[in-house]
């Protein structure tokens, strides 16, 4: 019997980053269920698609990632959240993790770093 596909959601205000993660995530048995370009869209999309794994930027228009993470966690309590952000200070990483993210990947990143970070969360 075919294994059920898991759902990956990608949130970033940069189209290039969204396309790159979609192309290079490297996760077997995952399909991208949607992308969003700000926190408001991300919360709505999470409620609609109930993803298993989410990548989310922090600096975004309308609603930033820091505010969106707890709302997404509330809507999808089992979803794993990987922050992918250029904000590289420790305080921000700690804040994101305390609000419900499980991982933090700093931009810029290599394809290998992205794949490793996603794989660790997917297998956790």
């Amino acid at each position: 019997m075919a294994e059920t596909m898991k759902r990956l959601m990608i949130v970033d205000d940069s189209m290039i980053i969204r396309r790159r993660i979609k192309r290079e995530h490297g996760l077997e048995n995952f399909s991208v269920v949607g992308t969003a370009s700000d926190g408001e869209q991300a919360v709505a999309l999470a409620r609609q698609t109930n993803p298993d794994l989410i990548t989310i930027d922090l600096t975004m228009p309308n609603m930033d990632g820091i505010d969106a993470i707890p709302l997404i966690s509330e809507a999808c309590p089992t979803a794993k959240i990987l922050v992918v952000s250029a904000l590289s200070d420790k305080a921000t990483a700690i804040q994101a993790l305390s609000r419900g993210a499980q991982g933090f990947l700093c931009k810029p990143f290599t394809d290998e770093e992205l794949q490793q970070a996603l794989k660790e969360l997917a297998e956790d």
Binding site: D13, S14, I16, I17, T59, M60, P61, S85, A86, L87, S88, D89, A91, T92, Q95, C106, K107, P108
Partner: peptide, 25 residues
């Protein structure tokens, strides 16, 4: 692309300047 480069340059600077160095989109 140019926006993402600018975002990365400014965002990475927070490693030295701290979280009170707040950046816009």
């Amino acid at each position: 692309m140019v926006g993402e480069i600018a975002n990365t340059i400014a965002g990475n600077a927070r490693k030295e300047f701290g979280s009170e160095f707040m950046i816009s989109v």
